[in-house]
Simulated assay, not measured.
Amino acid sequence: MSHRTERCGNRLLHEGYEMFEYEIHQIRSAELIREAQNHRLVTEALRGRRADRRGAGHRSGRNDTEGQAHSRGPRRHRFARAA
């Protein structure tokens, strides 16, 4: 297949390459869509795991006298405030 080159302004146009560029664009677009779907699936799975852990914590009596080492409640500051 022979390609013809034309000058258009300050760039060269290669006849026949537009379709090639369009196909590359389509492939990249499909890759990005798959990647986004994969990311959403992973995020959904992580949310489910967190919800299961939270539910298991409540069922196992997490609020006993020992308590949990890392709670989400407000903390005391490490240093006292300056006057």
Rank of each mutant, 00 (worst) to 15 (best):
S2Y: 08
S2W: 03
S2E: 04
H3V: 13
T5I: 11
T5K: 06
E6C: 07
R7I: 12
C8T: 08
G9C: 01
N10P: 00
N10G: 05
R11G: 05
L12I: 15
H14P: 00
H14V: 14
H14R: 10
H14Y: 12
G16K: 00
Y17I: 13
E18Q: 02
M19C: 15
M19V: 14
F20E: 12
F20I: 14
E21N: 07
E21R: 09
Y22F: 15
E23H: 09
I24R: 04
I24N: 04
I24Q: 08
Q26H: 05
I27L: 10
I27R: 06
I27Q: 12
R28W: 02
S29I: 02
S29N: 07
A30G: 03
A30D: 12
E31L: 12
L32Y: 04
L32Q: 08
I33A: 15
I33W: 12
I33L: 15
A36N: 09
A36I: 01
A36W: 08
Q37G: 04
H39Q: 13
R40A: 06
R40D: 14
L41I: 14
L41G: 13
V42Y: 02
T43K: 09
T43G: 04
E44R: 12
E44D: 10
R47G: 11
G48E: 01
G48W: 01
G48D: 02
G48F: 01
R49Q: 10
R50V: 10
A51L: 08
A51Y: 06
A51P: 00
D52S: 10
D52G: 10
R53H: 11
R54Q: 12
G55K: 12
H58R: 15
H58E: 15
R59V: 04
R59C: 00
S60W: 09
R62E: 06
R62N: 03
D64A: 02
D64E: 01
E66P: 00
E66D: 11
Q68F: 09
A69E: 10
H70R: 12
H70G: 02
H70N: 06
H70V: 13
S71K: 03
P74W: 01
P74T: 03
P74N: 07
R75L: 00
R76N: 01
R76L: 00
H77I: 00
H77C: 02
R78D: 03
R78A: 03
A80F: 04
A80P: 05
A80Q: 11
A80E: 11
A80V: 02
A82N: 06
A82V: 07
A83K: 13
